[in-house]
Design a protein around this nucleic acid. Sequence first.
DNA 1: CTGTTGGCGACACGCCGACAA
DNA 2: TTGTCGGCGTGTCGCCAACAG
Lengths: 725, 725
Amino acid sequence: MKDQGSGGVTPSPAEVGDKKPINSELWHACAGPLVSLPPMGSLVVYFPQGHSEQVAASMHKELDTIPSYPSLPSKLICKLLSLTLHADSETDEVYAQMTLQPVNKYDRDAMLASELGLKQNKQPAEFFCKTLTASDTSTHGGFSVPRRAAEKIFPPLDFTMQPPAQELIAKDLHDISWKFRHIYRGQPKRHLLTTGWSVFVSTKRLLAGDSVLFIRDEKSQLLLGIRRVSRPQPALSSSVLSSDSMHIGILAAAAHAAANSSPFTIFYNPRASPSEFVIPLAKYNKALYTQVSLGMRFRMLFETEDSGVRRYMGTITGIGDLDPIRWKNSHWRNLQVGWDESTASERRTRVSIWEIEPVATPFYICPPPFFRPKLPKQPGMPDDENEVESAFKRAMPWLADDFALKDVQNALFPGLSLVQWMAMQQNPQMLAAAAPSVQSQYLTSNALGMQDGIGNVNEDPAKRLSMQAQNIGLPNLQAGTKMDHPALTSLAQQQQQPHHVLQQQQVQPLQQSTTILQQQQAQLLQQNAIHLQLQQEQLQRQQSQSPQQLKAPASLQPMEQHKLKEQQPPGGQAVSQAQLLNQILQPSSSQLQQMGLPKSPTQRPGLPSLTTMGSLPQPQLTQSPQLQQTAEYQQALLQSQQPQLQQLSQSELQLQLLQKIQQQNLLSQLNPQHQSQLIQQLSQKSQEILQQQVLQHQLGGADAVGQLNHLVCLTCLLSLDVQVM
Amino acid sequence: MKDQGSGGVTPSPAEVGDKKPINSELWHACAGPLVSLPPMGSLVVYFPQGHSEQVAASMHKELDTIPSYPSLPSKLICKLLSLTLHADSETDEVYAQMTLQPVNKYDRDAMLASELGLKQNKQPAEFFCKTLTASDTSTHGGFSVPRRAAEKIFPPLDFTMQPPAQELIAKDLHDISWKFRHIYRGQPKRHLLTTGWSVFVSTKRLLAGDSVLFIRDEKSQLLLGIRRVSRPQPALSSSVLSSDSMHIGILAAAAHAAANSSPFTIFYNPRASPSEFVIPLAKYNKALYTQVSLGMRFRMLFETEDSGVRRYMGTITGIGDLDPIRWKNSHWRNLQVGWDESTASERRTRVSIWEIEPVATPFYICPPPFFRPKLPKQPGMPDDENEVESAFKRAMPWLADDFALKDVQNALFPGLSLVQWMAMQQNPQMLAAAAPSVQSQYLTSNALGMQDGIGNVNEDPAKRLSMQAQNIGLPNLQAGTKMDHPALTSLAQQQQQPHHVLQQQQVQPLQQSTTILQQQQAQLLQQNAIHLQLQQEQLQRQQSQSPQQLKAPASLQPMEQHKLKEQQPPGGQAVSQAQLLNQILQPSSSQLQQMGLPKSPTQRPGLPSLTTMGSLPQPQLTQSPQLQQTAEYQQALLQSQQPQLQQLSQSELQLQLLQKIQQQNLLSQLNPQHQSQLIQQLSQKSQEILQQQVLQHQLGGADAVGQLNHLVCLTCLLSLDVQVM
DNA sequence: CTGTTGGCGACACGCCGACAA
DNA sequence: TTGTCGGCGTGTCGCCAACAG
């Protein structure tokens, strides 16, 4: 028998074991410039939905018949226990094997690892990638090496030879060596790979359109990899598992792991998967701070043919769950987008927030007052940007460059942490982890006398919290102002107290929050209000101000409140948070019509109805239809914002808090009877507060500033909650 | 560009769609002679365990880390909704895609289809299969066709030519045509395939050891397929799904389907899978009647190299669950076997009952009395066999040939079915489905007044039932005797009644069963008793009648009862059926020794211990040590049988029923409080009955015939349900 | 009867510069 | 600068019969 096709250097048979780990540089070169892997030990967010998409893409199948898996949340926070790089022995397709362990709490190291992993550069510097031509892959000849590539990567030729030539040896992903004759000949002179090349092509079954890439590693050794063009594979039906079983397998494995906090293993196939579905937690959190809105402009990276990157501009045209039935409240591809260029047909129309870079618009780059006390001049100027950036960098030197601008908006909402804390309630252990830190940070002397370190929590989330404080643009908050939030505190306490105590204590926090917040956070109001003005101004300018929108009967509010009440699920059935938010901030046109309002013909479909609703009961806005001066804008916006927020007054917010509590597993740990009692009492109390509020409002909307004060905080909390969720 | 490797006839590009269904003959030829597929629409038993094994085999991975899936039973009865034959486009590996729908009830057609599907012959008659030699696969030459094969399959050559040659065109599984030059030349003359062969070899990537097969279909068209030698594949790690996820996916998909009675899809890979895991229900049921025992001899079919079959002899060396933790009470490979031949190392050591053919021993071929009233002469004679077979065939012409012999034994052990019936309880819905059928057949006027067709059961199980009746040797049962089984009836009723009614009714059925059965079923006793006599007679003759065995203390019975009682798991933990069966029918030698009995040195290991146990407390047997007259045999056997059955009297049956009720999900549908109350009351009642029975027995075993009477009937009835399972 | 081998012819693989985009 | 082509040497594929197990 012949030595079947041992072209190049025959791989030594001893290497069959495939024990040698795959070269990371080469792996990443094959994976492409956009692929980054979270560092081992770090925290990640795993999206089963994205995982399903990858499988569907591999199977060339639709995601139709997959049964929903209600016990599996739309995302899991996991610790990346292990990460192994692989390459398919048949196709050389690169993929990564990750072992993920769902976590309920996380330690400082993992969080740090998650942070640090964001900025790792993985693409090797010394490499080139060429898409193979018909001549390259034909049996007629060899491989024509681009001059620059050869001079950059290959060892220098001895030009005294005639012709100059050398033998190149390069190892592939499986550590198999391939030998090529590198020659510089022809008229005009060129670099060619001749002998050995066709064996490589035939063994790897390369076709024109596939790419080959050479890299020179740190030891100046040549490595080579291939990247196949995505061609419609012949129905990789796998013959092992039905596509349904695969999808169910993914979900079941993740659900099983989530239920037991046990590790599970996934494969990430960067070139087959439409998107990454294991996102570093830090990246995810970061992206959550990006307040997205319809019509927002953004940039997004795409891979070029020569393994480079290119940014394309796009506009957000929709926000909402990709699959509201199976995957409610997932951030997975919840942005519908349009692309500027006409070649955009091949680009995806749905992206996730962490995939995009919001483009700095005049509004977004407007600095907050404490960074820039004077009124902003015409925004969008380069010096503006630089000024803001440098200011942020001075304050937060550890932040990434592109972080500051994006977070300006959210930076003004200090209450954020409460919501995040609430989101954390999904994993009750995290509460135990977080609550003490909140105390030690902010509640050093709280009235309820909670002890630090209650529970078995030893890790220190202070870093996270302090980062948060800085992120939200209040660098002096951490050192200076102490915030108290009894709702938070006592909720945390409730979890730690025996159940029978709950019935007496459960309602207090809500009451306290309505007063303490008002008193303590007046200073924050100014900043927030100004910021909101600007935002509103922006929205106003984009919308044509149709007067109908501004005329709303005062009776709208109770009606809307009633709606909200009705929609509270009786037994704790989960309600889509997005729905909730929409009910609050974005009444649908049908809802508006129910209220006797015509659907605004001029309302842009993509724009959030925040303005619409907020301006409904507010007559002032009609007084300044021609908003052209910045100062006027701000004034008008402050005023128009006010009723909107007022409408979302404590009563509703508390209702929503209640709903949140019902939604979260928080209550599920309690005795069922205690649960129902708790819910009942909370509902009752909310009703009282609600009625009180309605009365107050009908009497003339007294204490508007104070209402606005804590309402701003609370609404921000709620809106952010949706994001955190 | 070249026309890449278009050897033979280039497949027309229009055929890419792969719409044409795969030729069934060719598929089966490639699958091998042992592979049979259930007919579409028929009923099958699906074993997730076997499915897992197939995946594990494909992945070359152990079945270690798979989490158990408690909600998934070890087998599912399904209707085969669709069956599609496939062949991997890369490897030509054949596999079948089956859509299975778990069923709770089944109709006559499906049952008939299941029956009829057993005897379908699928291997094509006109085919040959050759394992490729090194020369066949080298680039040096062509393919040497065995003379007989060429003359049988290929079109006849024109021997007037010099040399005789022709062009052959054969289509493969994908309907792609391959063209070969067939020539008869050389010295000595031989048939060769030359031109076109090497392209085929290289395209299919055939290696020495792989097989190629040619068949001639009904239209005299040549087809060819390949069958690769099972070589250790390079870690088919799939890069799509982790092996864990695959396994979980299988289980989750099946569990989901079982819970919803929704279809699910599986792939059966006959050459990769260690065993079939979708078994025709009829085949499974048939196999269940094979009373297996340690030491039993059997034959089993294996595939030969040239796609033929060969029988190997083996001995059962163990009976028990392959995986008692994850798959309790599964019949999947529950037999541990040893093989006669020294080449047995490659053969499996665990098989399932439906894979083996028990070897006819003298005992097994003993005919029942109503087929052969005269005493058997020396058993094992050919004419004996034929006579019995023909007798059975006359009675049951629709039975397979090898059915009758195997089932003679089980026909004599009606009690066996109790345990099997218990196994059936794992699927509580089936109980509901089965019970009405029993009514319509036997309970046309039952005391509880249940209506026929209660529930949604419309199918007619009469056919099933009549088959059963014939199997157990009571051909006139169907037409004549009506049997009542209130326990079954009321159990079914309980499921259909509102929960609050349960507490008053729940105990009655057990009480009723003790009386009604006695009254109604006396006539059945005679037939059964006669049958039992003959069997016992046979056992007696084979055993040396050691007097020790016949002397047993009367106190043994309570002792044994106590044992049984002790082994009942308190909390519903399932007990292996085999264990249970052994406890009842086959006390182990250690158990016997515990009772002060020596292990019989002459007892054949393969024989069930019924005789041993049954004869223990029977003093009459000692009075006729030399049993030679048929009448004496019958008399003795009837008497010796009696205590054994009596031991399994109502009390225990009720206990076991209770136990089963606790185990099964039957109760899980009820309110928890009702559950516990029900269980408590049932336990109490059973205790009373049990004590009563023990007392009764100690007083002298009164009414033994009556006890036997209704016990036989009860057990017969219960055995009927096993088939339903 | 059939698996393997040596002989040998043909063909296509693959190296070369020319030419052109 | 590099993709494709014609020219052409040579390596190996593949047909043949001889030989042997």
